[in-house]
Amino acid sequence: MQNYNVPDNSDRISRQALDKNASEDISEKIIATILFGCALVSVLTTFGIVVIIFQETFGFFQEVSFAQFFLDTKWTPLFADKHFGVWPLINGTFLTTAIAMAVAIPLGLSSAIYLSEYAQPKVAAILRPAVELLAGIPTVVYGYFALLFVTPLLRHIVPLEIFNALSAGLMMGVMITPTVGSISLDAIRAVPRSLREGAYALGITKLEAIFRVVLPAALSGIIASIILGISRAVGETMTVLIAAGQQPRLTVNLAESVETMTAYMAQISGGDSPRGSLNFKTLYAVGAVLFLITLILNIVSYWIANRFKEKYE
């Protein structure tokens, strides 16, 4: 009986498998390191911005007291009679933001409801990119459109100053509408179809189902979109700089010129104030206030989105 020696390839196959696993582990570690580095760049950039802002702000408060900054009602740091009350800038910021949200919330939410519940798929596929196209228009275009078209048009109806809060707020509302509408649309579409069908089974109309079932179920996403829209309006610069003017006033009159925090920062950034001067440091003090406001708004948005988030199975 003849014996045949069969070559044993198990060791070679095992070594190949080990080498392959080792190379895959190295690749995974390299990719993980690269991704970690990218995330770290974002974190370090944010940290650096915060450090610089508050470092310069600390230098500002070495020369100006908190009482002068938070209790005074006049903002004239560039004049001979200097006042450093930040409230006129905060007032101008929130006045234009309130007008903007009065426009963006109904327009954005209505467009989201239509695209989600009423529009045919082909129509929605055309209209949604068209609405979101508004977000791609440069803000300086909105500013000049408000100054050269909206303001003259409104002055035929109501008495307005050439630079006024109303025109700037209206154009900001149009600009922010895609933000509110797009996020609200995603929140409404995330509501399960079974909830709608259950509402229809109870005999209620489509409109009643939208307002009594769909919108309450999507409430967290809708509120988050509104708060994000407010953050966008608070941080807007060019539209309010061009259309609202540079008159820091503590007023609620929409027909008057006001100055927002971002508009003042753009004014100081023009280079007229020497670096290291008190006027230059006001840039960082106002920036710190703006940073804290937007941070609070984002925290509230995150809390609401998690607090009222509905989970479906």
Rank of each mutant, 00 (worst) to 15 (best):
S111D: 03
E56S: 10
T239P: 02
A285Q: 10
G287V: 13
F54D: 09
L202C: 14
A199C: 06
A22Y: 14
Y200W: 12
G203A: 01
V123P: 06
F47M: 13
L133E: 15
P152V: 09
I242Y: 05
S10M: 09
V6L: 14
W303N: 04
K29R: 14
A32D: 12
Q16K: 08
R189L: 01
L107I: 11
D19W: 14
Q55C: 07
P106R: 07
L202G: 09
H156S: 15
T294Y: 00
V141S: 09
A125P: 03
P106V: 00
L219D: 04
A102Y: 01
M1K: 04
P121G: 03
E161Y: 11
L292N: 04
V258Q: 09
L133R: 00
L153P: 09
F94W: 04
D11S: 14
Q2E: 14
F58K: 00
V6A: 12
G173L: 01
M265K: 07
A305C: 07
I223F: 14
I113K: 02
T205M: 08
A288S: 15
I52N: 12
T179Q: 00
T260F: 01
G229P: 10
Y118T: 13
I99F: 10
A201D: 05
I226C: 12
G48E: 13
A100Q: 03
G143S: 12
E236M: 01
L297E: 08
